[in-house]
Design a protein around this nucleic acid. Sequence first.
DNA 1: CAGTGATCATTT
DNA 2: AAATGATCACTG
Length: 233
Amino acid sequence: MKIFKMPKAEPKTIQELMQRAAALAGLTLGEVAELAHVKVPKNFKREKGWTGQLIEFCLGASAGSKTQQDFAKLGIELKTIPIDEQGKPLETTYVCFAPLTNIAGIEWQTSSVKNKIQQVLWVPIDGRREVAPQDRCIATPFLWSPDIEQDNQLRSDWEELMEMIALGQIENITARHGQYLQLRPKAANGNALTEAVGKNGQVINTRPRGFYLRKEFTGEILQAFFNSDKSGY
DNA sequence: CAGTGATCATTT
DNA sequence: AAATGATCACTG
């Protein structure tokens, strides 16, 4: 049984990060919140990113809204993911904003999506709505990098979506496009607007969009890990 | 407004 | 019941 202690600084090595993460396994959000001296919301209607921020804090990620990975030095992105009793994801996973202008010449290999998910520290957490947030248990965190097949799956979807954007078809893209990577609105509300390319190449205003990993995709990642999990948790 | 962290809630 | 489209809080 590992005892979790709040970190004072950013982890300097992957080993240090993974040790901190491993120490969170089995704890409830309520227990972790107490260690962090914060209150657990009764629901997430008004604090949707609460869990992610808590885990960031617990692992020593530097706060702020940077476009880079959470642990840039280590090249690792942190993602909490809500799961059900079978370990299946309950929500899609937000990756990053989609560029809607000046996208000529942009490529998968250097894209924000590719960069963000090169190496992810997944922290699966019970996300069942029938369980009170304070009682939701943290499962075993694990490190993942896309294999060739997964990279190809995402690249294929990404190229399809980016081509539509480049051709001024942004308004025709729905969340139904993309088998593993989808494009959905990502904003504070429906009034938020940003520039994009219209049907005839003109500048139009549209709702900002973000890339999301479908549950089918993250579900396979989780399943692959749980099937080989030797942690005994 | 753009970006971080995501889940909510209406529609299908 | 599941997925899409909408939304919440906070920081530069």
